[in-house]
Design a protein around this nucleic acid. Structure first.
Lengths: 238, 238
DNA sequence: TCCTAATGGTCTAGTCTCAGTCCATTGACT
DNA sequence: AGTCAATGGACTGAGACTAGACCATTAGGA
């Protein structure tokens, strides 16, 4: 009944899994780190007020404050009191701790998962009825990548925008999850300008297919795009 | 910054989401109900011992016991003491409570999500290097559907087997999640023999494509299969 | 027949988390 | 200069949850 390395995945493991990832404090820290790592808030930006964060994350304000204090200690956040005060992002989150030994084992897991949800999102976005504002949003996120000083957060924002366009909150969650996991691995390997150029061309291709309402082509463009970093990761870590 | 009906999905909502779905007791009840609803344990089967459930679900044994007591009260479970005792499934879980009013709003969400992860799983399974035991397992699950007295759990077991074959635990989790949500909706509408026949033919098609190692054909077979229940749901609930 | 191991049943002390309240600080607006 | 609303900061009491120990029951095996 338990998970044994090398054993086939069992459905029971998927259902009888931990119902909570850790204590409330740890999960709050993770949630805040994700918002920084994925570029949802950029350095200099203000986080929502503590009371709103507490309600969003479903934890008490005391717990949110503990999490913020921990990240402030680590130098990622800083708080200012008073009206127009708040909690601000100081710097991009430091690279994740050195990769755990089980990285290689879970590498394929993450890559397969990411491929499934991101390709699904691209196809769904191409199928969804997008209004002008939606389309504009996608285009902006794509263009923002080209000028971004820090490429990876901008890249994540584009991919999240694609997931948003799918119209499914569940799928958006899954894509965000997949990207956090993939980024943890990608942080361990270098980012070359030449890869960025290539990636940019592929982004334009994905965008074109979505705007044209062509699901199959959006999916395969996304698959090709992901294959790039997948190969990179397999090379460095596999 | 907050989620407003009709507003475009925002990435911040995907990242700053509740870190825990409810209290430990509720989540434990949900987890146990899922194992029954998805047919991971059948009527008459024994659940893992309380101590193991506690460790699996990441909650205390006291909480597991509360959850079991609640489900025993409802008539779904029964416990016996002593060695070779345990907690046993009495009957299939009763239909979910009447559908919440926001059902229609989330219907598309669930359907899009399910399509993405299940099609992704089918394609990944076709790509994965399956050994003889893996293939045999898939074939058995497909055949089991044809003879099952209760179709839906058997159907779920086949779909979960496909996700298992993908080799990605993350994807397996996502498929299990999607199915639980979809089943909650499907429980509200009738199941016709003629739909079952059709579904069975499609299962065989999916299986064939996976065994043949053809990802594209596995994906489109799965998409067609899902479209059937999607249309049914849209008709009854949309 | 007795022993033993595996299981559910019970209890306790301690920690974590929460909801709510009130205080302190700040800067824009009047 | 004064006011005020929005924010972070601090505290408390109550409840949830946990870890661990111990008890009670059962059926198979020595």
């Amino acid at each position: 009944m338990s998970t044994v390395p090398g054993r086939r995945l069992a459905a029971a493991d998927a259902v009888l899994r931990p119902v909570r990832a850790g204590n409330a404090f740890e999960e709050a820290v993770e949630a805040l780190l994700r918002t920084i790592r994925l570029g949802v808030v950029s350095p200099g930006d203000r986080l929502p007020p503590e009371r709103e964060l507490a309600s969003r994350l479903g934890v008490s304000r005391a717990t949110v404050r503990e999490a913020i204090a921990a990240l402030a200690d680590a130098g990622h956040l800083t708080s200012r009191r008073g009206r127009y005060g708040g909690t601000f992002v100081v710097s991009p989150a430091a690279p994740t701790a050195p990769l755990a030994p089980e990285t290689a084992a879970s590498l394929e897991d993450v890559l397969v998962f990411r491929e499934a949800v991101e390709c699904g999102a691209a196809a769904a976005a191409a199928r969804a009825p997008l209004d002008e504002a939606d389309k504009q949003h996608l285009v902006e996120r794509q263009k923002a990548c080209a000028q971004a000083a820090d490429y990876r957060p901008a890249d994540s924002r584009f991919h999240l925008a694609v997931a948003e366009a799918s119209g499914s909150a569940l799928l958006l969650n899954a894509v965000a999850d997949a990207r956090v996991r993939a980024n943890e691995l990608l942080d361990a390997i270098p980012l070359l300008p030449r890869n960025i150029d290539h990636s940019e061309r592929q982004h334009r291709g994905i965008l074109r297919a979505i705007l044209a309402g062509n699901p199959d082509s959006a999916r395969s463009a996304m698959a090709e795009h992901l294959e790039g970093t997948a190969a990179l990761l397999r090379g460095f870590l596999g």
